[in-house]
């Protein structure tokens, strides 16, 4: 007798926007049950039952409990719980959506996140391959270096050690260089000083204006001299501020290079352990710039000194 009335009443209550609690209360009153009795049957605290019947969800525990209470209440009254639960979900959009969307949304963001992640890995892998290719080119290209060296004196690209005939770039400097640098550092400065004299001669016309160097040594307005000495194979890529001067390629053991062009230099040294930088004879702390034996930094020798 009460069943059909409940079913006919249900849509109207939903249209009115009343929650499931309202409907359950009506059903309870139709059956002549007191709230105390129902609370005892459901083992719920009377206050909780009241909140449930008045659809005050903020006072009720987590949604999982509320749906459970509604289901048990419906069973007690002999009703079908499904429409009640639907009404509850509709009536508490904030609570329920938050709960369902919480997982749904994160799931979706995962879905879009993992392809993104994959694209990123692909980019990284391609980047690594490109780097490997560059390195390989660099390995094959000591020819480029000798070319640069040969053109060095004419264009102020790279200033070799002074007594260096361009035809034999690596023979003579190796011997004097290795001897002082390896056994004791004391005689090293003089050998480094040697190129200081010719350096400004070539440098002066092209880049006469490193300001700091100017104040410091007014007698010889020499730009600061940066010398790279290698005691093992090392890949380098050095560019000056203008981009005109560059040193690019693999250096061998005993190679020695003086940087020309205008500072600051952007420097990449592939094997930082095998390279030593001296700025005007002062050793430069390369180890602190190296990350996993690769040093990438910008060197402004005037500031570094």
């Amino acid at each position: 007798m009460t069943e059909p009335s409940a079913n006919s009443e249900h849509p109207s209550t939903r249209e009115l926007g009343a929650g499931p609690g309202h409907w359950l209360r009506q059903e309870r009153e139709a059956r002549g049950l007191t709230p105390e009795r129902v609370a005892a049957e459901l083992h719920l605290a009377p206050a909780l039952l009241e909140a449930l019947e008045q659809d005050r969800y903020a006072e009720l525990p987590a949604p999982v409990f509320v749906t459970g209470y509604l289901r048990n209440y419906a069973r007690l009254l002999g009703l079908d719980p499904e429409p009640l639960l639907q009404a509850y979900r509709a009536a508490s959009p904030a609570l329920e959506r938050a709960a369902t969307r919480g997982t749904g949304h994160s799931a979706r963001s995962d879905g879009s996140g993992s392809p993104l992640f994959r694209v990123a890995t692909l980019v990284i892998v391609i980047g690594l391959l490109v780097l490997l290719g560059l390195w390989w080119q660099g390995r094959q290209g000591p020819l480029d270096i000798t070319e640069v060296e040969e053109t060095g004196p004419t264009a102020p690209a790279l200033i070799e050690a002074p007594d260096d005939p361009p035809e034999v770039p690596q023979g003579p400097p190796r011997a004097p260089d290795e001897v002082p640098s390896a056994p004791d550092p004391a005689p090293d400065p003089p050998t480094d000083e040697l190129p200081v004299a010719p350096a400004p001669i070539v440098e002066a016309p092209t880049s006469p204006s490193p300001p700091a160097a100017g104040d410091e040594a007014p007698a010889a307005p020499a730009p600061v001299e940066v010398v790279l000495v290698f005691d093992g194979p090392c890949w380098v890529d050095i560019r000056d501020a203008t981009g005109e001067f560059k040193l690019f390629g693999e250096m061998g053991k005993g190679d020695r290079r003086v940087l020309g062009g205008s500072p600051p230099y952007s420097i990449i040294i592939g094997n930082a352990a095998a390279a030593t930088i001296r700025i005007d004879g002062e050793p430069f702390d390369l180890a602190s710039r190296a990350r996993g034996n690769v040093a990438r930094f910008t060197l402004d020798p005037t500031a570094a000194r």
């Binding site: 459901l42 083992h43 719920l44 999982v64 409990f65 749906t67 459970g68 289901r71």
Partner: peptide, 17 residues
């Protein structure tokens, strides 16, 4: 089963979805 535990413990028992 929920009713059994409800009766035995006198606590509300709900089944998760």
């Amino acid at each position: 089963l929920d009713r059994l535990i409800e009766e035995e413990t006198s606590l509300p028992v709900v089944i998760a979805e």
